[in-house]
Design a protein around this nucleic acid. Structure first.
Lengths: 209, 209, 209, 209
DNA sequence: TATGAATGAGGATTCATTCAT
DNA sequence: TATGAATGAATCCTCATTCAT
């Protein structure tokens, strides 16, 4: 259904995607206005509904499209030869920051999408979401050097603790940034603080070195 | 302005609160319909605005009201004489589960409120939010027995790791429950799993015992 | 129907009248809110409708009441022994200014009433209006010294020209005052200017003196 | 924003303009109902707001549009070669009557607009109003033959007296017409009466001829 | 492909008025 | 007399979607 859209000249495609991205990111699914989207994309009302039959399909197309785009960049640029889990997660964090700087609107949209309230759209999102996202989540821990962990550790649960810690830290930083109205506040400071947590986890879960 | 409302007979108060709670929880602030609320509360359109001058005040009243209600139950029922942080957090989790069973709609609402996108309402929420909530968050760790932690540990950051882990776990369980369309899936299993994580953290952060 | 109201203690009567006066003056008949009136009069909703069955009756009561009040003050304080029409009109203008200073809100209300758009109320107003007002208008020219006018003048039409001139001048001054946001701008200047017009009219319409 | 509207087929434009004209003329700005307008124009609710973003813009469009229309007709049809002020004002009155017969609803609207109470709309009206209207008012007295006035007369004030007289007369005639529920009562009688006043003024202000 | 006029249900809110107490 | 809770029609305006061109 969106094949029509994909055979449109690049420039117009982008105008439409960006307009929709911003509108949905700012206002959420239900509150976003297709009116505003066509206005800022400088296309006609009818055309939007010619390409995407309705608001929902437009939203899901955006979501799937940018999940793919981000995922691809992630896995192209992430170094999977590094077998130490903490080093790999460190470069993951750095990469994430780079991507946030490269495509801030896309991240805004993905964030707002992940908190979307509208039932109508949440269901449909999850199906594609889980397929792709959870698969990729697994890849993050492929070929990790498990010998570094202390004997007898429950690896899967340990990895969960590590990931939850980093996610918690990341959320905390985002909250701070929001309060200070800085889009992306001093990255170096944040990264140093992240390293402190990573060192704590390393000491706790790795063998004495 | 909501004092009018509070001097209303209990039964009608509850009809209105429940109707609003459900509508806001399901659809978020902007998308919730005051029309639906009055219909399901079986009151007239005018009456809702007689009590709460507008949608925003209704929302904020609900939020503040239920924050207070939950906080009170929390701190009345939580055992602060227990000085072991893990034991205290275990009883916190049990208490939380009890409260979720006791007031499921309230929890749905608080969850949706915490992710509310609407700028209009977020600001006003935060002022009361932070005052009360953050104060209470601090109380959770009052009078904790710090001598049990390994020598030289960074206590504050360690507590963060613990909290982020429990939060991550809790979110994971909620996701699972949502997928299985169980409002509250088998609590015992979940609690046993939580205990596993808690034991892992205890082993990692406490002195050898 | 308003006899009930008149047997109310003075202070409450005035609170109600003033509240209604201000609200109607500011917003006009249709747009005025009985809600605001009862709030600022500090009485209950029901009481207002107990005294005046509906908004329209309240409005008409106000109108008739204050027409009477103003008329009485006018004719009590106007010097009818002065037989020169221009002198009499001069003292009329001075008296009008005094009354505007004495009861500014009443004048605001009467002004807004005279421009009232609502058909519903305009009709009912006119009936009382014409009875009283037009009668009084006639009295202004009772016992005027007609011998001072040039021979052969059409007295009635000459008086019309005089009145229309003074009304036109008065409107012009009010416009100016409104533009400068002065409630009542320098009265002395305005009065001197009025005297210039009066002198012009006197020279034109009176015999050479 | 109203350019959309202007590129609409004539017949629909007129249906909308007439519907709005009547509603606003009858009830004033605040009390006019956009619902009634769309009903009587036989268009959908949405369409009105597609053309004019809101009630205020619709009102101001109407006002500006018809001020322009009337002004143009006025100055196209008024004879500025006539240098006698009274003759010029006579043809002005005749022209005004013609236009009132040609566009009675427009005059009703302009009258109600000139007495509009709503602050919201008065401000915005005045800016365009004064620019155009006051400029045109000046043109009425361009190239008038001043030599006809008596020596030593204060010309500006004399013109004021003349204009206020004609305006007063005109208002009086309108009041009469309204009372008799004739839209436009016998024009010839009224004009003859106007001529009497004009002759009186001429005799008073011109040199003996 | 592309336009944008047209729809009408639905949004929050205000209002004069009633009536049980 | 006096209260104020309760009503529901009416207010302006926005929205996603359709369709003739």
């Amino acid at each position: 259904m969106s094949s029509k859209f994909l055979s449109l000249n690049q420039e117009k495609q982008e105008r439409i995607l960006n307009a929709a991205l911003k509108e949905f990111a700012q206002k959420g699914y239900e509150n976003a206005s297709t009116n505003e989207i066509v206005k800022s994309a400088e296309i006609s009302k009818g055309l939007l509904f010619h390409y995407f039959n309705n608001k929902k399909e437009l939203y899901l197309f955006l979501y799937n499209h940018f999940v793919e785009v981000l995922m691809e960049e992630f896995f192209n640029e992430l170094d999977f030869s590094e077998r130490d889990i903490f080093e790999r997660l460190k470069s993951l964090m750095i990469l994430k920051s780079k991507l946030m700087i490269r495509h801030p609107e896309v991240f805004d949209f993905m964030m707002s999408a992940s908190m979307e309230a509208s039932e109508e759209v949440k269901e449909a999102m999850n199906s594609t979401n889980t397929e792709l996202m959870e698969a990729s989540y697994g890849r993050l821990f492929e070929n990790i050097d498990l010998t570094k962990f202390q004997e007898g550790m429950d690896i899967q649960r340990t990895i969960n603790i590590i990931m939850w810690t980093l996610k918690g830290f990341s959320n905390q930083e985002q909250e701070k940034a929001k309060k200070l109205h800085k889009g992306l506040h001093d990255f170096n400071d944040a990264f140093k603080e992240a390293e402190v947590y990573i060192d704590m986890l390393r000491k706790s879960f790795y063998k004495n070195q």
